[in-house]
Design a protein around this nucleic acid. Structure first.
Length: 153
DNA sequence: GCCAACGTTGGC
DNA sequence: GCCAACGTTGGC
């Protein structure tokens, strides 16, 4: 399948994923149930991911990654001084999962949302929908291809 | 910093 | 289990 993952580049940017090399990075800290369900149930090894930089100066799609390890228990939910600590989580009941993400490609420039909105085939893309707040969301193969095409322009 | 949209919480 | 109040997200 094809996905869009949102990330604040100050936390984990496409460059950070690239720097992690073949080990990839642990995609942790997802604390929304709908996003968690995608991560736990549908994100599979080999799936392709558009990496979207949010809450920063240059908002937009920054590159491509791939899933190198499927859902496992998110370790950060147990770390008391972590931003992602969940006091309700314990060994018996650990609601949050993480995946491991590996670098594929960094776009020559960030693709801003305004550019994406101008592409007819992306009218239904979930990332572009008003009020969208999901940090893990599916996208279609066709949308994925259109974004790659736009990245070359 | 504004504000729309959505999620979460908690009283009843 | 309803729903108002509150918190958070995130583009602009």
């Amino acid at each position: 399948m094809f996905w869009v993952f949102k990330t604040e580049p100050a936390e984990c940017s496409i460059a950070d994923i690239e720097a992690a090399g073949s080990a990839g990075v642990v995609w942790e800290g997802v604390r929304n149930y709908q996003a968690r369900n995608f991560l736990r149930d549908q994100v599979k090894t080999g799936d392709m991911v558009l990496i979207h930089h949010s809450s920063c100066a240059a908002v937009g799609i920054a590159g491509v990654a791939t899933i190198i390890a499927e859902a496992f228990t998110d370790p950060s939910q147990f770390v008391t001084d972590s931003l992602y600590y969940d006091p309700k989580a314990n060994a018996d009941k650990a609601p949050w999962v993480a995946v491991r993400v590996g670098f594929v490609r960094k776009f020559p420039r960030i693709l801003p949302m305004a550019d994406l909105r101008a592409i007819a085939g992306l009218a239904e893309m979930q990332l572009l929908k008003k009020g969208n707040r999901l940090s893990i969301m599916p996208t279609t193969n066709a949308e994925f291809d259109l974004v790659l095409l736009a990245a070359k322009a």
